[in-house]
Computed example of a mutant assay.
Amino acid sequence: MFPLYDVNRARRPALVVKGLVLANALAFLLEYALGPEEVVRAYGFIPALFFQDPAGEAYRLFTSMFLHGGVFHILSNMWFLWVFGDNVEDRMGHGRFLLFYLLGGVAAALAQGVFTPFSTVPMIGASGAISAVLGAYYLLFPRAYVVTLVWFILPFTFVLPAGFYLGYWALLQFLQALLGVPGIAFWAHLGGFFFGLFTARAFTPRWYRY
């Protein structure tokens, strides 16, 4: 299932979401201009290195979330951010949302590191930070609906409750993490999601809480 758009329209322009999409796009172009393998090795999050020297390797917690492994990787990540991020930014406000997003990415990387502490494979991508946005959306907009594309022989669209869609998404990440499906940092997805779920209210102004 792939989200096309949510029916809950934000009231204010999503300036931070647009800025993050632009920053990721520019970082992607720079990454491939300089050589993706070298850039990923230099700026991706590597758990084994981080736990050997946390202070010296801390910069990777931030740089890794702006790197991507290919066109589909960045397009899918930015689409999820575009679909769900505007309403969360609207609810939190621009400054709070940016801080929330960055901390969510850090929490996601650390979660992956805890479960794979000896890994020397660089972890890259905005998925962890965006997973935090999904967790916040699940908490803040439980009655919203998402128009979802489902491909079964032919493509169909369904209008699903956001809570159902995101709950299904989180369960899928958990099952794949347990199965050890290679190539994707599923523990980072879960770490980001639960960071968003448990901290979103702290980043939301009091007059918006309910």
Rank of each mutant, 00 (worst) to 15 (best):
M1P: 08
P3G: 06
V7Q: 14
V7E: 15
P13V: 01
A14M: 03
V16Q: 05
L20M: 10
V21M: 13
V21Q: 11
N24S: 14
L29N: 09
A33R: 15
L34A: 12
G35K: 05
E38H: 14
R41H: 15
A42N: 13
Y43K: 09
P47Q: 00
Q52W: 12
D53H: 12
P54Y: 07
G56P: 03
E57T: 11
E57R: 13
E57L: 08
A58G: 09
Y59V: 08
R60N: 10
L61W: 05
S64T: 05
S64N: 06
M65S: 10
L67D: 07
H68R: 04
V71A: 08
V71R: 04
H73A: 10
N77F: 02
M78S: 09
M78Y: 10
L81H: 01
W82Q: 05
G85E: 02
N87K: 12
N87L: 14
V88S: 05
V88T: 01
D90E: 06
M92K: 00
G93A: 08
G93M: 01
G93W: 03
R96W: 04
R96S: 07
F97Y: 11
L99I: 11
Y101N: 03
A111P: 04
A111K: 02
A111M: 05
Q112D: 12
Q112L: 11
G113M: 10
P117R: 09
P117K: 08
S119D: 14
T120W: 15
T120C: 15
I124K: 09
I124P: 07
G125I: 01
A126Y: 00
S127K: 01
A129C: 11
A136D: 03
L139K: 06
L140A: 04
L140D: 04
F141Y: 12
P142M: 04
A144G: 08
V147E: 05
V147H: 07
T148E: 07
T148S: 03
L149D: 04
L149K: 06
V150R: 15
V150E: 13
V150S: 15
W151M: 14
W151H: 12
W151P: 12
L154M: 14
T157C: 13
T157I: 15
A162I: 01
A162M: 10
Y165W: 07
L166T: 02
L166G: 00
Y168T: 13
Q173T: 02
F174L: 09
L175K: 11
L175Q: 11
A177E: 10
V181F: 09
V181G: 10
P182A: 10
G183N: 06
G183C: 09
I184D: 08
A185I: 02
H189W: 06
L190H: 03
L190I: 07
F193D: 02
F193K: 03
G196Q: 02
A200G: 04
R201G: 03
A202S: 12
R206K: 14
R206H: 13
W207Q: 13
Y208H: 15
